[in-house]
Design a protein around this nucleic acid. Structure first.
Lengths: 220, 220
DNA sequence: GGAGCGATGATTGCATGCAGCGTATACTGG
DNA sequence: CCAGTATACGCTGCATGCAATCATCGCTCC
């Protein structure tokens, strides 16, 4: 909900940003326990800012109260389904808004070009069978679409969903059928945006995320 | 994003919940500055948990960094528009999911009855020209719809949007045309849910929130 | 040998202390 | 009377200290 332009100073926010970044990179295993002292030592600050950051992660749902403090939140199959349902709608809205802005001439040509480029990068990474790079390139593309929507609150909601999913996922791209479909679907979304057709873009995005949800298999 | 079933213990979370509740009740004026010491004294705890709670409010965007600490976030017209755009889509999804669950027999008859009752309460409050009660009853209805959707992540996203809007709003219900339309639109949403028709429910909800967005005028 | 129980250790949760910083106020000079 | 400046106060931000709590490990008893 915070407009991303804010960059509050302070060690607490830095710790929070760092941890959030680590989560979205899947650097922590689900169920792993986090201790304040260890993080404080790791990040070179005292326990207080770490404590604040963990509190924020708690409200984000990225960590859950555990026996002795907090643990990295896992994702039950039901939760994953709920997340993808929400994500499908949010990304559909993002694509729709991006297309609307394009129709109104509010998107720079460079932004559209960047979308094409991002699609290419995903394709390359998938063809190279590099799951890590694929996930990152894929996220970059979707982030770019979210940015093109021009709605900071939507972007924030998307980030929350992505981060929550990213904890447990290295996207399942070894399914050859899904790997083949992903680029085609990406191109359909971008085509809808480029054409300035909100309905087409929305449907393409929704279809894509629903397919991604079916392909997703949470780590055990 | 936090599944609402979690209820982390601790004074920090209690402070956060209290403040969040106050915000959603509009108890703080936009721009008002909040000091840790005053809140700590008010709530009978030390500055530390207050500090943590304020940190969470910062990431929620409900407060913004100010000269001397934090101030209650105001809402620019552009932000309000973005919020209502997102809200329209989220509530549309909520109504759609609620209708789907109804079609699958997953909604208890008591839930449907509660929706009807909530609509009636909004109507009464609006007819009584009680803006405060109207806003609360309206929020209660929308919360009920959100709950009927059965998706905790969607509920959380909705709460974030509502709270962000609630800071500056006591809904503008003195517009007689809007006041007359609101109950009709509410009934349309509930009718769609009761009929188990996701498309009808979605469109009704979207139409309603878009109308609400037009009627909304942020406090100066 | 297994199970129950107690002690110890680690870790959280909150309070307080202290330094740094910015704001506001009061005072002085023009 | 107004403007400029210096001082002092309030407030934040972080670190540390202390008490309470819970898990784990080892011991004893059956």
């Amino acid at each position: 909900m915070a407009t991303p332009s804010d960059s509050p100073p302070g060690s607490a926010h830095a710790v929070y940003a760092t941890l959030r970044h680590r989560f979205s990179n899947g650097e922590y295993a689900p169920g792993q326990r986090l201790t304040e002292a260890a993080l404080a030592a790791d990040l070179g600050v005292s326990r207080t800012p770490v404590r604040e950051a963990i509190g924020r992660l708690l409200t984000d749902g990225l960590v859950v109260p555990a026996a002795r403090g907090v643990a990295v939140a896992a994702l039950t199959p039901a939760e994953a389904e709920h997340l993808f349902t929400l994500r499908a709608d949010l990304e559909a809205l993002a694509a729709e808004l991006a297309a609307s802005r394009q129709a109104l001439g509010m998107l720079a040509p460079a932004e559209i070009t960047a979308l094409d480029l991002a699609v290419d990068r995903v394709e390359e990474a998938v063809n190279a069978h590099d799951p890590r790079a694929s996930a990152q390139a894929n996220l970059a593309l979707h982030r770019a679409i979210g940015a093109a929507a021009g709605n900071p609150f939507l972007e924030d909601a998307l980030h929350r969903v992505w981060d929550r999913i990213a904890v447990t996922t290295v996207a399942n791209l070894d399914d050859p059928h899904w790997a083949g479909a992903i680029t085609e679907q990406h191109r359909a979304i971008v085509a809808g945006i480029r054409a300035g057709d909100p309905e087409v873009a929305r449907k393409a995005a929704k279809t894509h995320i629903e397919a991604a949800g079916r392909a997703y298999r949470p780590a055990p």
